[in-house]
Amino acid sequence: MNARIGHIASNTFREAVRDRVLYNLIAFAVLLSGAAILVGQISIDIEKLVVINLGLTAVSLFGIVIAIFIGIGLVSKEIEKRTLYTVLSRPVRRWEFIVGKFFGLAGTLVVNTFFMAIGVFAALFYVAHKFVRADALILIALYFIVLEFLIICSLALLFSSFSSPLLSAVFAFSLFVIGSFAEDLRGFAGMAHGLTRWLATGAAYLVPNFSAFNVISSIAHEQPVAAQLIWHNTLYALFYAAMALSGAVLIFEHRNLK
C-alpha cells in the first residue's frame, strides 16, 4: 500500500484515540457487566440469550455512533480548521487523503470492536461458566458488524466530503435507519407499478442494505449462518464501501477548499 495512505491512516487513528474515543469502552464495560451480573442472579434460562443479544447490539450501536460522529468530521473538520492545507500542500494526492482517512477510521473501529468483543465473551463466560462450539457463531456476528461499520464509515466520509458535519450526521444516520429497513423498501418496490417501481427499486439498491448483516438474534438462538451469506456480505460490504469512497474521491477531487 501507498506509504502516505498508511501515514494518514495511522495519524487518523492516533487522533481518534487521543480524542478519547476509546472511552466508550468504559460505558460498554459497565453496561455489559451490569447486565451480566443482573441476569446471572435472576437465572431464568435465558442469561446467555440476554448477554449475547445485549452485548452484540451494544457493540453495533456504539460502533455506529462512533463511525458516524468521527466520520462526519474527518474531512469537513480538517477543512474548517485548515489542517488540510498543510497536508495537501505536500506531495499528497487528494484521493490518498480520503482513502487514508477511511482506513484510519476503520482501524479505530476494528480495535474498538476487538475490545468490546473481549467484553462480550467475558460476560458470556461469567453467566455460562463455559464456552460451547456454538459460541463461535458470535464471531460471525461480530464480523458482520465490522462489515457494517465499513459501510457506515464510507458513507460518513462521503457526506463529510461535501457537507457540514451536522448535515452529514443527519444523512448518515438516516441512511443507517433506512438501510436497516432496506428489505421492506425492496418489498415495497416489488409491489409498486410503472415508474414508481423503477424508482423504488433503484433507491432500494442504492441505499445500504443492512438487513442481511443483522444475525444477532438468530445467533443468540444458535442458528447456523450459511457460509454463502458470509461471502455475500463480505463482497457486498467491500463493494458498497468502495462505491461510497469513489463518490467521496470524485467530489473531493473537484472541491475548492475555502
Binding site: 495519524n11 480524542d19 485548515r82 489542517t83 492545507y85 500542500s89
Partner: peptide, 30 residues
C-alpha cells in the same frame, strides 16, 4: 510539492498531537 513549503494564515493543527508527532507526520508525508 515535495520541494515547496507552505504556512497557511493562522495555522491550526491536530489538537491532540505533540509538536514532535505533528512534524514527524508531516515529514512522513513529504
Amino acid at each position: 510539492k515535495a520541494q515547496i513549503g507552505f504556512l497557511p494564515e493562522q495555522p491550526y493543527f491536530y489538537d491532540h498531537l505533540t509538536a514532535h508527532e505533528l512534524l514527524n507526520y508531516y515529514a512522513q508525508l513529504s
